[in-house]
Simulated scan of single mutants.
Amino acid sequence: MTIKVLVVDDSGFFRRRLTELINADGRLQVIGTASNGQEAIDQAGRLRPDVITMDYEMPVMDGITSLREIHRKLRIPVLMFSSLTYEGARVTLDALEAGAVDYLPKNFEEISKHPEEIQKILCDRIVMVSGSRTSVASAAPTTAAPAPAVAATPTRRGGLRSTQLVVIGASTGGPMALQEVLTRLPANFRLPILLVQHMPGTFTKAFAERLDRICQISVSEAKDGDVLRAGHAYLAPGGKQMLSDGHMRIRVTEGESHLNYKPSLDVTFGSVARDLGGKVLGVVLTGMGADGREGARLLKAEGATIWAQDEASCVIYGMPMAVAKAGLVDEVLDLRRVAPRLCEEIN
Rank of each mutant, 00 (worst) to 15 (best):
S135A: 07
S83R: 08
L96T: 11
L67C: 06
A137L: 13
Y86E: 15
A137N: 14
R90Y: 01
S130I: 07
Q43T: 09
L122T: 01
P49V: 09
P49Q: 13
E87D: 04
Y56E: 10
V60M: 08
C123A: 04
E57F: 04
I64E: 00
M80Y: 08
I70V: 11
Y56P: 10
L74D: 13
M54G: 02
S66K: 04
V136L: 14
I41C: 04
M128G: 00
L67M: 01
I126T: 01
L18E: 04
P49M: 04
F108L: 12
M128Y: 04
T33M: 09
V101M: 04
S112E: 10
R133K: 12
A89N: 01
L28R: 03
S112C: 07
V136E: 14
Y56R: 06
Y103S: 08
G45P: 01
S130M: 09
L93Q: 07
S83W: 11
V51D: 10
H114C: 03
V127Q: 02
I52D: 07
I64T: 03
K113P: 05
K106L: 11
D25P: 05
D124A: 05
A24S: 13
I31W: 13
Q119V: 09
L21I: 09
A89Y: 03
G88K: 06
S132C: 00
K106A: 11
L96F: 08
D42L: 14
E87M: 05
V51E: 00
I121D: 03
A100W: 02
V136K: 10
E110D: 14
L122R: 06
I52H: 10
S66W: 06
Y86K: 10
D102W: 08
V101C: 11
L28I: 05
S82M: 00
E20D: 07
T19V: 05
I121H: 04
M58L: 04
I41D: 01
D55H: 10
I76F: 07
A139S: 09
S138F: 14
Y56I: 15
V30R: 05
E39R: 14
G26S: 05
Q119D: 07
A34G: 13
D124W: 01
S135F: 02
A100K: 06
A100C: 02
E110S: 12
D55Q: 12
A95T: 09
R46H: 13
I41R: 01
T19G: 08
R46N: 13
S83C: 14
L93P: 07
Y103G: 12
S130Y: 08
Q29V: 14
Q38A: 13
T19K: 10
V136F: 15
D94Q: 15
S135N: 12
K106V: 06
Y56W: 15
E116N: 12
S135V: 03
D62Y: 11
G131R: 09
R68S: 09
L84D: 09
D124P: 01
T92M: 15
S130A: 14
A34H: 10
S66V: 12
R46C: 01
V51K: 03
L18N: 03
